[in-house]
């Protein structure tokens, strides 16, 4: 069995910051793991600018990783299958196998997952062409996929707006449907509404989905039918904490970043990661 002082699950902004902070404070045994090949987490699929001064996701990641200490352990392409109360985690990955790692402190930096359409009170069929917004962002920006228009996006929060902008820039007709009386995202993300031909329909939501095999359209609760071939669900995020399900807040567990609470700004995520890294190291030092 392998051992580390601090195990960090998730190498997005929070995990990277936590690893650097713990290492910088003096911890020599930090292990950072992620299910993807590269560090950066969701930042890697963010083609839009708006991180740090005015960087896109990959650029901001590069900045976070400048002079990243080589002595921080890094294992890509692994899934943490479970974490147990006796401070052990089981890791699984291609070419890596399944390994048990014991630790003193655990930092969870697993981010969020998106709410799928099935969780919403939306009636109708379940045709092809319905995605979550982040899923489409990954498909477009990491795999070059281009969806068919017209596109309807449910939810005008930041992710919904970012996707609306990118899709409209691709030349697709985009309609945002927002349950609240006004657009939900940050002001800077709302700019696309005036700069691009994006429709915004507020104070309504989707009632029903149509289409047998492929998506044909949606109906809003106020009875408007919008034909569309792609529907993106951008109604919100849920902290991804499933791997610690059943553990009752042990004192060796630290949550940071979006798995702790959803942060609109990456800087807040980074700061929380730093604090978690230092707190974890303080716990170890205090017990020495």
């Amino acid at each position: 069995m392998e051992y580390c002082d601090i195990l960090i699950i998730g190498a997005g902004a929070a995990g990277i910051a936590a690893a650097r902070a713990a290492h910088g404070a003096g911890c020599t045994s930090v292990l950072l793991v992620d299910r993807k090949e590269n560090m950066g987490g969701v930042l890697l699929q963010c083609a839009h600018h708006g991180f740090g001064p005015n960087l896109n996701g990959p650029e901001y990641t590069k900045k976070l990783l400048e002079n990243f200490p080589k002595s921080i352990g890094w294992i890509p392409n692994v899934t943490v299958l479970s974490v147990s109360g006796d401070k052990r985690a089981i890791l699984s990955g291609a070419g890596f196998g399944a390994k048990e790692v014991s630790f003193q402190q655990l930092i969870l930096a697993t981010g969020c997952r998106e709410i799928p359409i099935g969780a919403l009170p939306i009636a109708g069929t379940r045709p092809k062409g319905v995605y979550t917004a982040g899923q489409m962002q990954e498909m477009m920006n990491l795999y070059g996929f281009i969806p068919e228009g017209p596109v309807v996006i449910l939810g005008s929060g930041d992710l919904g707006l970012v996707m609306a902008k990118q899709l409209a820039q691709t030349g697709l007709a985009v309609t945002l449907v927002e349950q609240r009386p006004e657009c939900g995202g940050m002001v800077k993300n709302q700019r696309c509404l005036t700069e691009l031909p994006i429709q915004l329909q507020c104070s309504t939501t989707i009632s029903e989905v149509f289409g047998e095999k492929n998506l044909e359209g949606i109906m809003t609760v106020d009875g408007r039918y919008l034909p569309c071939k792609t529907l993106l669900i951008a109604v919100g995020l849920r902290p991804e904490r499933e791997v610690i399900f059943g553990l009752e807040n042990p004192d060796w567990l630290h949550l940071c970043g979006n798995c702790n609470a959803v942060h609109p700004m990456v800087e807040a995520v980074v700061n929380e990661g730093k604090r978690a890294g230092i707190a974890a190291w303080e716990k170890i030092r205090g017990s020495l």
Binding site: G93, A94, G95, E242
Partner: peptide, 14 residues
């Protein structure tokens, strides 16, 4: 079954 997990939620391997 192998160690490369594709479906994270259900832990289904490649």
């Amino acid at each position: 079954k192998d160690h490369e997990i594709i479906c994270q939620c259900e832990q289904i391997s490649k």
